[in-house]
Every structure is written in C-alpha cells, then in structure tokens.
Write a protein that binds this DNA or RNA. Structure first.
Length: 128
DNA sequence: TGAATGATTGTTCTT
DNA sequence: AAGAACAATCATTCA
C-alpha cells in the first residue's frame, strides 16, 4: 500500500521524477545491497561522533515491533535470534492496515516531535 | 569471557 | 532529490 503516507507535505508533487526510483529491494540482503557496508551497531556506541546528537526515535515499525516482540516471544518462546522476530514482525507489519498502524504511527509522530526539539539544540551547537 | 553479528522497516540527516 | 546511517532486540558465534 503505497497509499502515500506522505501527507506531510514535504513533497507536494515533484512531478514524476520520484514516481518510483526503486522498489525492488529484493529484501534479500540489506547489508551490502541497501547500503555499502557499514553497521557499527555495536553495543557500546554506534555513532559517538556528535555528543549532542540525539538518538533517532523508534519508527512506527519499531514501536509495533516492541510490542510484537512480546507477543511473538510469548507464543514462540522457542524462537531464537532477533531475525526471527524481525521477519515475522515485518511480515505482519505489511499485513497490517493503515488503521492498525495508526496508533503506532501516532506514537512515532510524537517521538518525532520530541526529537525535533533535541535537533534544535543539536543544531545550535553545530552552528558555530 | 566478551564483543559482534544478524534481520526487520521507518525516519531522519547529510550531501 | 537521492543516498546513507542508524533506531531495538537477543540468541548465536568467533577468538
């Protein structure tokens, strides 16, 4: 459903240039396919480049995943690995309708608002 | 023993 | 406009 969730207005029309740059991500291996190859998602600190850089708020998908993980693990206590929940969650996420994602998006929207505030502070620091 | 990885999508920043 | 990077989780795995 591309129903376009871009109701934000960021891109009003942009003609047909961004009609669909690429949607065949194949979802096979996001590692090198989606991005070159950089995932310092270590446990310590992934990006400690900027001390004031606020962490990005969890997206609607993450919010849903957070709750989904509990349910999934609860019904599948034998599940091993985060990829299992990730795949299951991603599959279900796509199966969900906009109405179902609404509450999750609402939360994500709120996070974005708070993140915006932090960004303002971060911007001031960067501004020298 | 300890640190790193893998997998999901989304959002946001940076160029 | 387009690309690149990172957000959480947790069992498994390499040295």
């Amino acid at each position: 459903m591309k129903t376009s969730s871009r109701s934000k207005g960021t891109v009003r029309k942009e003609t047909k240039e961004a009609l669909k740059p690429v949607d065949d991500r194949k979802l096979g291996k996001r590692k090198a396919a989606v991005k070159a190859d950089k995932k310092p998602a270590k446990k310590g600190k992934a990006a400690k480049k900027d001390p004031n850089k606020p962490k990005r708020p969890p997206s609607a998908f993450f919010v849903f995943l957070e709750e989904f993980r509990k349910t999934f693990k609860k019904e599948n206590p034998d599940v091993k690995g985060v990829s299992a929940v990730g795949k299951a969650g991603g599959e279900k996420w796509k199966s969900m309708s906009a109405a179902e994602k609404a509450p999750y998006e609402a939360k994500a929207a709120k996070k974005k608002a708070e993140y915006g505030s932090l960004m303002d502070t971060y911007n001031k620091k960067q501004l020298c």
